[in-house]
């Protein structure tokens, strides 16, 4: 058997794959956070809770309405997006004039509400959600055999991330969005409905979290606490990558997933803290983040 630094190549590959899967979720979530932050200047603390709700949404669609995985992949993000729009219209909207930290606090309160509610309803143990038949079973890549579904997760999240990047950086709609991020007042003066864009942006960011939740449902346990640990790692990812660029969020999400996977192979005790250690190092060397711009 081939070994690298005393680790069998197979184990290395499989941890790398797992790291990429985790990284896909980091990328999707930090992308949503970055999009929201760009427009609203708010860090959405409820992102983890909304991701959890995405997973529960998929589970409920299946158990109550018999809507399968691929249906949920479309319906759940829409439902979550609508919830996001409601949150923006009725709550966040009132905080644009005060310190942006209040936005963080408000969404923190929302995270408590959502998580507490789901916990009182479903307990902490969680529900299982089966992998859809079409994506079940292993696939042979030549150098390793992995479950089809994991490959699908990596593929889908890459597609969604790149699509989002393309829309924001290369299309007319995206240029409006970037303009509104740069200077909302001037953009409004040019006749673009900025409040509407803000609302849709928040909705879109939340929908991304919902999508990530649906994708996570078959891999992780669908539980009320699934977002609570994840969100803080994603925060660290965001600090490492910096909020400056969309690409930065995607690359650092995937990259940190891989680093975490590798740590699991070479030095397991550090695997849960490695992201935070990297964050500390980045703060020392480059406080604005790897892709961030110093203001």
């Amino acid at each position: 058997m081939i070994e690298i630094f005393g680790v069998p190549l197979m184990a290395l590959y499989s941890q790398l794959m797992l790291g990429l899967v985790n990284g896909s979720f980091y990328a999707l979530l930090s992308l949503g956070l970055a999009v929201i932050f760009g427009m609203l200047n708010i860090i959405n603390f409820a992102h983890g809770a909304l991701y959890m709700m995405g997973a529960f949404c998929a589970w409920m669609l299946l158990s109550l309405f018999n809507v399968g995985y691929f249906g949920a992949l479309i319906i759940a993000p829409i439902i979550l997006g609508l919830i996001g729009i409601l949150i923006e219209r009725f709550l966040l909207k009132w905080l644009y004039q005060v310190d942006h930290l209040y936005g963080l606090l408000l969404t923190f309160g929302l995270a408590l509400i959502f998580e507490g509610y789901f916990r009182s309803k479903f307990g902490v143990s969680g529900e299982t959600y089966d992998v859809p038949d079409l994506l079940d079973g292993p696939v042979n890549l030549g150098f390793m055999v992995i479950p089809k579904y994991r490959l699908w997760v990596i593929f889908l999240s890459l597609v969604v991330c790149l699509l989002t990047w393309f829309v924001i950086e290369k299309t007319r709609l995206g240029s409006y969005l970037r303009a509104a991020t740069e200077n909302p007042k001037l953009t409004q003066a040019f006749g673009i409905n900025v409040p509407l864009m803000v609302m849709l942006t928040y909705g879109f960011g939340v929908a991304l979290a919902g999508l990530a939740g649906v994708m996570a449902a078959p891999i992780y346990q669908v539980s009320p606490l699934m977002g609570s640990h994840l969100i803080i790692i994603v925060f660290a990812v965001v600090v490492i990558g910096g909020m400056g660029s969309i690409m930065g969020a995607i690359v650092s999400g995937l990259g940190l997933g891989i680093v975490e996977g590798l740590t699991k192979v070479f030095y397991p005790p550090l695997s849960s803290t490695v992201v935070f250690i990297i964050m500390a190092l980045v703060l020392i060397v480059r406080p604005a983040g790897l892709f961030g711009r110093e203001k």
């Binding site: 209040y102 309160g109 995270a111 408590l112 509400i113 507490g116 009182s120």
Partner: peptide, 21 residues
């Protein structure tokens, strides 16, 4: 209230931030 305590705390949080800063 059991687990609903978290929900109540969350509601207080939201209300404080919105109208009771």
């Amino acid at each position: 209230a059991g687990d609903m305590v978290t929900v109540i705390m969350g509601v207080i949080f939201v209300v404080c931030v919105l109208i009771f800063r």
